[in-house]
């Protein structure tokens, strides 16, 4: 069985599939300008980022220029223009996390993964993002990996977290290799 192909499809739908899906989602919104941000949020919730094709389609749906949509989307922190990693890492740099060394945690993730804040690893496993306060100040410093909040972070915990995901990945790969029956 070939898992990787279907996984690719789920993560990066090809252009036609994407356009079909975006069109279906746009049907849920009337073409009023005030729906622009909710539409963009809906698309990103589903596709994890705003593809250029999606931006053009949204512009057409609302009847404004693509540049208008782009201008609005680039204003807000929420919107991404590149697909994130499978395991997005958000490092909190709220005030409480900052005074407890949140920037050191961020640096450790960056060093461990060899990417900077805002980037995705080449294997698309991880991406790093700095966020301003996830609202768990009493647990500072905090990082969010996938949707799991990791409180009381320490530089030494960074390696463990990354390693945990890598081991999990290796295990899945191994199981695939060992799977009897159909050749890959």
């Amino acid at each position: 069985m070939n898992y990787s192909a279907s996984e690719e499809e789920a993560g990066l739908p090809d252009k036609i599939a994407l356009e079909r899906d975006v069109a279906a989602r746009l049907k849920g919104f009337d073409n009023h300008r005030r729906n622009l941000i909710p539409i963009l949020q809906d698309i990103q919730d589903h596709f994890l980022y705003l593809a250029p094709e999606a931006i053009l389609m949204v512009a057409e749906h609302i009847g404004i220029g693509a540049s208008e949509v782009y201008g609005v989307a680039t204003f807000y922190n929420q919107f991404r223009f590149h697909p994130p990693g499978r395991h997005p890492i958000k490092v909190c740099l709220g005030t409480a996390c900052h005074v407890r060394g949140g920037d050191i945690i961020l640096e450790n993730f960056e060093r461990k993964l060899g990417i900077s804040d805002g980037e995705t690893t080449t294997d698309r496993e991880f991406s790093i993002e700095r966020v301003a306060c996830v609202g768990c100040c009493a647990l500072a410093p905090v990082a969010v990996v996938d949707e799991n909040i990791q409180g009381h972070m320490a530089p030494s915990k960074v390696e463990g977290i990354v390693l945990g995901y890598k081991i999990e990945r290796d295990r899945i790969d191994r199981e695939r290799e060992n799977e009897p029956g159909e050749p890959a």
Partner: peptide, 24 residues
């Protein structure tokens, strides 16, 4: 009626952008 150009990005990075105009 609808501008074909926009402010893009934010804060110190703000620029004028013609995003999408190359296709039009």
């Amino acid at each position: 009626g609808q501008p074909r150009m926009t402010f893009a990005k934010r804060g110190f990075e703000t620029v004028i952008s013609f995003y999408g105009e190359k296709d039009l």
